[in-house]
Design a protein around this nucleic acid. Structure first.
Lengths: 120, 120
DNA sequence: TTGACATATTCTTTCTTGGGAATATGATGC
DNA sequence: GCATCATATTCCCAAGAAAGAATATGTCAA
């Protein structure tokens, strides 16, 4: 089974960094596509494609106005993500003492090959 | 450019539903791999691969104990995700009145083909 | 050592992605 | 109609992804 489609749900849609930037830009108020192109310095077709993905999962709303198409983030659609992460809040609260130690362990492991790691 | 690796960051790692389930299961306390296999009814190699991805982005910690390898969710690593979603909290609060209307629009659009949608 | 248990890796197959370039569609004003 | 602005789609490509099956590695116990 290949990886799930980016349009399958919110989690997959926001996995792409550019789409997260677009969502942030379109959160305060609606904007035409070209504003996104100019602000984020992306190619226009690229922006259109990202917006399509976001629209399909309901993360943005769209409205036609003359020649322009105005997009806006539908923040409500991000709540499931927020709530899912919230389920872990109680755990990171109780793990605070061990955080630094673990971060250091993790850093030591970074850039090691699987072979080296396996020997441990 | 193809899609970013699942190990590139937290967002990509949690885009996979099975990995989210694994994180939930391993949040309360550490568990051997086979417990994950049994509980989530996944193939053992599949679980090992998912755990590897989670380990590389720091979402789980690992500890060897005899023949077993114990894994545990590092909830702290989910905070960036939670905080990113929190940035949109003020927007969904102020958009509450329009939510139902939009959800209905979205539902009407679901299962429409791009061709139909384009005509609007 | 041998065998059994626990976990990890490799290989193959099927499928999706995001960028770039080119082109198509859509709306407006003359 | 025609040129122009604004946006969307299509085609191609390189890079992975996830599942399944088979196999490898590691550890303990007798």
């Amino acid at each position: 089974m290949p990886r799930a489609a980016t349009t399958s749900d919110t989690f997959n849609a926001v996995a792409e960094p550019r789409r997260r930037e677009i969502l942030e830009f379109l959160a305060p108020r609606e904007r035409p596509v070209n504003d996104v192109v100019a602000e984020l310095r992306l190619a226009q077709p690229s922006v259109s494609k990202h917006l399509r993905v976001l629209l399909e999962v309901g993360l943005v709303q769209m409205r036609r106005e003359g020649r322009q198409v105005l997009y806006r983030t539908d923040a409500e659609a991000l709540r499931p993500l927020h709530e899912w992460a919230s389920r872990f809040e109680r755990y990171w609260r109780s793990q605070l003492g061990r955080v630094k130690e673990r971060a250091e362990q993790q850093e030591r492991r970074t850039n090691e090959t699987p072979e080296k790691r396996r020997k441990r």
